[in-house]
Design a protein around this nucleic acid. Structure first.
Lengths: 108, 108
DNA sequence: GCCCACTACTCAGTGATACTGTGTAGTGGT
DNA sequence: ACCACTACACAGTATCACTGAGTAGTGGGC
């Protein structure tokens, strides 16, 4: 698939929120999961910047735990603000994608 | 609706291409049409920057015509490269939106 | 013991995009 | 003369995904 970078803007962060909302997880695993989900070309560096942003914006709770497979991992889970942000994200996605699809189907 | 700015990145240009592809039209009209289609908050300045970019990237043909209602209008229509770009845009949209919707519906 | 692959995170800098604000200008109504 | 509406351009800003370089821990092959 072509480069999706620009189209991911504004949606990738929401996708990361969704993944974290399912179960407590960490950056390296999120990156691999995204790629497995078809978000090809999303590299680790990108995921880490999003995670640091989520932390800075106080949307997640962070716990550091030893790994056994390498350096310690930072596990992320959503707090109340994060769950609200995730809900807002899906509302916006629903709104926008429906408009775009209508435009695509020839709607005026 | 909340601010859609970030989510529009990478898709708004494609939407403008789609509108131009339907019939020859001009910036001011495109801006009003977008708002009518539910893309609220998209202002004229944004549309003009996109149009100038499309022109610079040689995806459109431009014709200037007097208006009778104000200053002359710049009418845009797609050339072959523009139609190809539009097709690529919809392919990418289809790909990405399907992945995101699958994620939303709880798919792993 | 030494290198290398894999795991795991950080951070400064880049490129692309939508938006803001300001300016210019033509037409028509009061 | 003034104002509203139409119509476009352009410099500057904010945000976001990405790049590249760096730091570290674990374990396997030689």
């Amino acid at each position: 698939m072509d480069d999706l970078t620009e189209m991911l803007k504004g949606t990738l962060e929401g996708c990361v929120l969704e993944i974290i909302g399912r179960e407590e997880t960490y950056g390296y695993a999120i990156a691999r999961q995204l790629n497995q989900l078809g978000f090809t070309g999303v590299v680790e560096g990108t995921v880490y910047t999003i995670l640091l942003r989520l932390e800075r914006n106080k949307l997640v709770q962070v716990v550091k735990r030893p790994s056994g497979m390498g350096p310690p991992r930072k596990f992320y889970s959503l707090n109340e603000a994060g769950r609200e942000e995730l809900a807002r994200f899906w509302t916006k996605w629903q709104y926008l994608s429906s408009r775009i699809n209508k435009l695509k189907e020839g709607g005026e």
